[in-house]
């Protein structure tokens, strides 16, 4: 029989369910909002700061289990990963695109007021 290794244990899944819902905007990134350690993560931090929304960041470089588990949880292979209202929104390119089109601001306004 074939056994597949999964980094996402049931415990981690339920923890992540709680984490992504703990704040309206949650960003999993390389580094911290004050000290991003990758250009892509830095870009998303700059966008969120410029929109003046409160957001929580988690540094995936400090926790390899979290990093691997999140890739499965989000079904997304790279970081940063932005969550809005408990839902996966996208990575850096999607966030930049939505920022340029005004959709991100619209979504955040709705999310912050709900």
């Amino acid at each position: 029989s074939i056994r597949c290794f999964s980094a996402l244990s049931p415990e981690m899944r339920s923890t992540l369910d709680k984490v992504v819902k703990s704040h309206t905007v949650v960003l999993f990134m390389k580094g911290t909002k004050d000290f991003p350690q990758c250009g892509f993560s830095s870009t998303v931090v700059q966008i969120l700061k410029s929109l003046n929304v409160p957001f929580e960041t988690l540094n995936i470089l400090e926790n390899e289990m979290l990093r691997q588990g999140l890739k499965e949880y989000s079904n997304w292979p790279t970081f940063p990963q932005l969550y809005i209202d408990g839902e996966f929104f996208g990575g850096c390119d999607i966030t930049v695109e939505a920022y340029k089109s005004g959709q991100l601001q619209e979504l955040l306004e709705k999310a912050m007021c709900s």
Binding site: F88, G90, I94
Partner: peptide, 10 residues
């Protein structure tokens, strides 16, 4: 949507 398009590429 863009997210789904990116998922296809990934």
């Amino acid at each position: 949507r863009l997210l789904e398009r990116h998922r296809l590429v990934n």
